[in-house]
Design a protein around this nucleic acid. Sequence first.
DNA 1: TTTAATATTGAATGAATATTCAATAAATAA
DNA 2: TTATTTATTGAATATTCATTCAATATTAAA
Lengths: 210, 210
Amino acid sequence: MKNTIRKERKKEIISGMYELSRREGLENVSIAKIGKHLGMPPSLVMHYFPNKRLLILGLIDHILHQYQLIYKPIISKLEKNPRVDPELLVERLFSREWNLLFDDGVFFSCYAFIFRDQSIKKEYKNLHVKLRVTLKNLLDKDEVLVSGDTGLLAEKIFVVIEGAYYYLSMMDEAREYDQKLELFKNQVYDLIYAEINRIQSGKGMYSSGG
Amino acid sequence: MKNTIRKERKKEIISGMYELSRREGLENVSIAKIGKHLGMPPSLVMHYFPNKRLLILGLIDHILHQYQLIYKPIISKLEKNPRVDPELLVERLFSREWNLLFDDGVFFSCYAFIFRDQSIKKEYKNLHVKLRVTLKNLLDKDEVLVSGDTGLLAEKIFVVIEGAYYYLSMMDEAREYDQKLELFKNQVYDLIYAEINRIQSGKGMYSSGG
DNA sequence: TTTAATATTGAATGAATATTCAATAAATAA
DNA sequence: TTATTTATTGAATATTCATTCAATATTAAA
């Protein structure tokens, strides 16, 4: 099938672009460099991606797909348990196995596009909403939590996770990194336990909760 | 003084660069464009910033300085109160007055550099640590909170703020934005009230706090 | 005023940029 | 097999890029 080679070539080009961005930074990647990296003339790159914007959109699709994949094994392992084990949940959500698979530099370079490209903004948003829904569904499996506001809890958890990675990316020393990481994990624990407490005491003890 | 004109010219150039980055995106800014924008030959730009890296470092300095300035009036207003009013604190920390003064697009474009430039990473980190220390000092003024772990509380509050702005930047509709914003504000309230409760009950009710 | 340092200009550089085009090779459909 | 579509090549385009340089203007120090 002709479509096969086309799809594979496009994948190959985007993967090459991603590798280059990782090494040299997105701002230093050009069509010629991508071609050289893959051993093809720049005109072939442009045959599949007629302009640079499409190339960037392709890269973003790729990255967001990867980003989603990272959470898949984490979620699927958690899904096997009948109840939500807060400790396990937090451990998995903050696990940085993916650091080897995923480059935050490219991710944030692309993230910056959301401020001047509406369609990129939408793509980013969709992913982030999707992750929250997945977590909500997971929380809903817990017999206690299900009677609370799991959607709200998922939002609260993810805002900590995302804020944490934004901040943790600035850390150099492993010790400091681990220390802060522990702190944010605790912060998520507290969110879960507070929600459980709220449900079991039948009434909100704090201001939040709808 | 000769140094005066030099400093002012450098400022002028960086400001021009910032304006251009805001309008067209950092990746589309060139030395020639900066010169054109300011009515000076590119060679003059390079007289003050002998290469592009220095220009980018200058821009980042500028942005981080601006970012810090945003918090200044917020903090100074809060400092006048003898006790910490959680509602006022949260309202001010999440106030988006600065949106008119500050461009998140340029900020995140520059943020992406931390992953490949150690000195930029350090600069970003310094600023973020500084903001946390400022908040801690503010919390220490409160007669109740001072006997708790205000440093920890400040970390927890900022991770929500930063995660919130990362996520909120993806929102298009004002209603959705406001709704999420409210949610994250509540999340910060809860952190403060939980800490107050913890102190007043003399003992941690959750796992955190040490 | 003379001297030295800095500010500013404008022209020139070669390399890299995205993109176009015509030509050929390969694969598929008729 | 022939016709047609797609894949691939390589050369060419004008433009923009960061950077250099020599020449001049301005300012401050002697």
